[in-house]
């Protein structure tokens, strides 16, 4: 129940035109397919299925907006796909709005 309430919070939607960053509560471990992320707060394990996504997530904090980070790291052609990917990382609290 609690979890459903949290997901319904507007705060937890991904807004590409805001600044984002990897949560300080998350450890990222590189793996052959990408990385594993573990959130020490909610104790969830999340799979980042591509190296590009891992690089992007790490790079978020260096850009004024997430959109800018996407363009810089993976390029405009794959913009939508990576907005979607980041969106799913918001729900599991891997990234947060700075």
């Amino acid at each position: 129940m609690w979890r459903l309430l949290i997901t319904a919070e507007p705060l937890n939607t991904f807004t590409p035109h805001q600044p984002w960053a990897l949560s300080t509560k998350v450890a990222l471990r590189d793996e052959s397919f990408g990385a594993l992320a573990y959130h020490y707060g909610n104790r969830r394990l999340v799979f980042l299925k591509s190296r590009d996504l891992v690089d992007l997530v790490r790079d978020l904090e260096h850009h004024d907006t997430a959109a800018e980070a996407i363009v810089a790291t993976v390029g405009l052609e794959r913009f939508d796909a990576y907005v979607q990917a980041l969106d799913s990382l918001v729900e599991s609290e891997v990234i947060y709005e700075r």
Binding site: E31, S32, F33, V46, F47, K49, L53, R78, Y82, A85
Partner: peptide, 14 residues
């Protein structure tokens, strides 16, 4: 693009 775990079971095997 998805980050769902299920498709990854094959990766664990490696």
């Amino acid at each position: 693009m998805s980050v769902k775990p299920m498709a990854l079971t094959d990766r664990f095997k490696q």
